[in-house]
């Protein structure tokens, strides 16, 4: 079981993230407030995460997740970016002793996804996840996509058929698999398998889709297809992507967060982060410098 020290706070309705506290003297705020024109899909507030051995992997992170935008999280290995991503859909609950602090508020309902009353299974239907390596189930293409729907309790064949086709179309793989829906997912190429996994994540119609280095195992052509797909999807679903590929973050994301040693050092428009970062540590990291 996962402990959480937070309770629901539905009285808080402001859409601005908490004031930054970790800025160095004369440094700009670590976290910039979202522009008013960009509605929020989620707010990460004063969020910390501890592994079962007591190690604090995330330290009081504040971060707005903008609705139907792509937010990229970058940072060196071990900085906590994947840990943060997996916190957003309660993946850490699968291991006992892990502990969250703070809030992950899903807007506009104001529901705290890591609150004790939030059902992790239902959270994962609302916040889908695609992993680094394509991991289709050892089932047919159809059943891979239908799996999430069945978890949701949908049993009508016609409804599932329609949802499977919609998800495969949204994942830009329908034309490639429509004639072999009942063939094994393992017969697909790596790039196709990854798009199938995206379709599987999309099938329950999530509000947020999390992508954890989704192209690191793919060749450039498959990577390009996934990147195009992610950008198209951002018109209808909020996306958070963790990537080590900074060119990819620069290409596809609207906002970028730089993490270091469990802290969110800087968050801002992707163009600003990659052309004129405010924090020296961000600059050093993205330019590939010591220091």
């Amino acid at each position: 079981m996962t402990d959480t020290t937070m309770t629901i706070d539905k009285t808080k309705t402001d859409t601005q993230p908490a004031a930054p506290t970790k800025a160095e003297p004369d440094m700009p705020p670590a976290i910039k407030p979202a522009a008013e024109r960009d509605p929020l899909r989620a707010r990460i507030e004063n969020f910390s995460f501890y592994y079962s051995n007591g190690f604090q992997a995330i330290k009081q992170v504040d971060m707005p997740i903008l609705d139907r935008k792509i937010t990229a999280i970058i940072g060196p290995s071990g900085c906590g970016k994947s840990t943060l991503l997996r916190s957003l859909n309660r993946m850490h609950d699968l291991y006992p002793g892990n502990r969250y602090e703070g809030k992950v508020i899903l807007e506009p309902e104001g529901e705290n996804l890591i609150g004790p009353e939030a059902d992790p299974v239902l959270v994962r239907l609302r916040v889908g996840m695609v992993f680094q390596k394509p991991n289709p189930f050892p089932k047919s293409i159809y059943e891979n996509v239908a799996a999430g729907l069945r978890v949701r309790g949908i049993k009508k064949r016609a409804v599932i058929d329609e949802a499977v086709e919609t998800a495969l179309r949204r994942a830009a793989i329908w034309d490639e698999v429509k004639d072999k829906l009942h063939g094994s997912a393992y017969d697909l190429s790596g790039g196709q398998q990854q798009r199938l996994c995206i379709a599987r994540g999309l099938a329950p119609n999530p509000e947020i889709l999390l992508l954890d280095e989704p192209t690191s195992a793919l060749d450039p052509i498959a990577t390009a297809k996934v990147e195009d797909l992610v950008q198209e999807l951002s018109e209808t679903v909020t996306i958070v992507i963790v990537t080590h590929n900074m060119q990819q973050a620069a290409r596809i994301s609207h906002r970028t967060a730089f993490m270091y040693l469990g802290e969110a050092i800087e968050f801002g428009d992707t163009n600003q982060i990659f052309t004129n970062p405010k924090h020296p540590r961000t600059e050093s990291y993205i330019t590939g410098r010591y220091g």
Binding site: M246, F274, T275, N276, P277, E283, I286, T287
Partner: peptide
């Protein structure tokens, strides 16, 4: 080198 930030500028 696909420079960014100050290097790109």
């Amino acid at each position: 080198f696909q420079p960014v930030a100050k290097d790109l500028r």
